[in-house]
Amino acid sequence: MLSEQSTATVRATLPAVGAAIGDIADLFYTKLFDAHPELLRDLFNRGNQASGAQRQALAGSIAAFATQLVERPGTRPDVMLDRIAHKHASLGVTPAQYEVVHTHLFAAIAEVLGEAVTPEVAAAWDEVYWLMANALIAIEERLYAQQGVVAGDVWREWEVVGRTEETPDVASFRLRPADGSPAPAFRPGQYVSVQVELADGAHQIRQYSLSSAPGSPYRAITVKRVLGDNAPDGEVSRHLHAHVREGDRLRVSAPYGDLVLKSDDAPLLLASAGIGCTPILAMLEHLAGTGHSAPVTVVHGDRSPADHALRADHALFTEKLPDSAAHFWYENPEPGHPADRTGLVDLSSVAVASGTHAYLCGPLPFMRAVRTQLLAKGVPAADIHYEVFGPDLWLAQD
């Protein structure tokens, strides 16, 4: 909880800090990478830095956290903190790195806001930072302990035991620990980080959902190749598609992620678009394998049936459930595809059972649209869960 004195100071300065938070985030990353270029090379996603997505996510999370401290004292935005902590744990972030961030973030605040940063203002925002940082450190320590790893030491060598071309731009890689030890347990919907060495020597990391269910003899990731020769956000996916074959090895983290089934006995709606189907497939396989009997509604949108990765599995696992229905929308459907399932996902004709818990994964515009439709159908906001591939620009809405 923020102290009374700091609460008053943060409340008074929040509009000014909020208006400048984008500039602060830009300057922070410039200072951070000037002082520690290895962090951009080997930890941060260069694509998200180039696009500005990471800066937006940082600014949004700080502003959301500070706003909650002053508007709802005594509470924490735990959904936001958990999501950030899972991402951090999958990257191996350590407590010491929060000190590094603090140094450069507060240098950026002082430079952008100038004389407005009095000692009182600096102390108040320092308190905000460490409340957020210490909350994340505590969650991350718990996540590391759950996986039986030391903070930051999340990496193991995994062997590629199979590769399947799902579509021209999507491939699945089946993995097992290279040392023959058991694969760590995970919950359907979670992801792993994969680190590869690129041609320029950088060790870039990306997260990929596990597309197989727990209990499989291997772990599978399904990777969509991001096109564009000069797109830094696609440099890892292009590397995997071009260079990784059966018998090769990858550095893979322990599994993390907070988009997991919270109530197996409730009616479920599993909605995805594009490659967002991967965590949904793991959930469906798990539900089919455990005899889930409550209603399950499966929704997916894609450009065309040919672009729909794992389409056969999507339909097969749904059919194995005793009370289920699958609804696939395609912008460019095959002849004979229902007209009311052509174009973008539209839930107006889809029945949603009372008590439904919804799980969404896909591009942010898709998830915004589906969430809006579900809210209109009476699904409580607390029962709508989502996963964002990359920095979460939706944090302030939770």
Rank of each mutant, 00 (worst) to 15 (best):
D392Y: 00
L136R: 06
R72W: 02
L91M: 03
P15M: 05
I384P: 05
H300A: 14
H86V: 07
P335T: 15
A107H: 03
L32Q: 04
L360Q: 04
G257K: 11
L91V: 01
P255S: 01
G274P: 05
L259C: 04
Y330L: 07
H337Q: 06
L395M: 15
V170W: 01
P335S: 15
E165N: 13
R41V: 01
L375D: 06
G289H: 09
D313F: 03
V252L: 01
P15K: 04
L287N: 04
A133M: 03
R163Q: 05
T75R: 13
M80N: 12
E331C: 09
L198C: 07
A85T: 01
W329F: 12
P184W: 10
R311F: 02
S6Y: 06
A19M: 12
W125E: 06
G289I: 10
S348L: 05
L14M: 14
F173E: 11
L360E: 00
L395C: 13
A220V: 11
A294E: 09
L259Y: 02
E140W: 09
P391S: 09
Q54E: 01
H243C: 10
L210I: 14
K320W: 12
C277Y: 02
R176Y: 11
Y29V: 07
D265G: 03
A254P: 00
T67D: 13
V160M: 07
A353S: 12
L360M: 01
E115N: 14
R163P: 00
E285D: 14
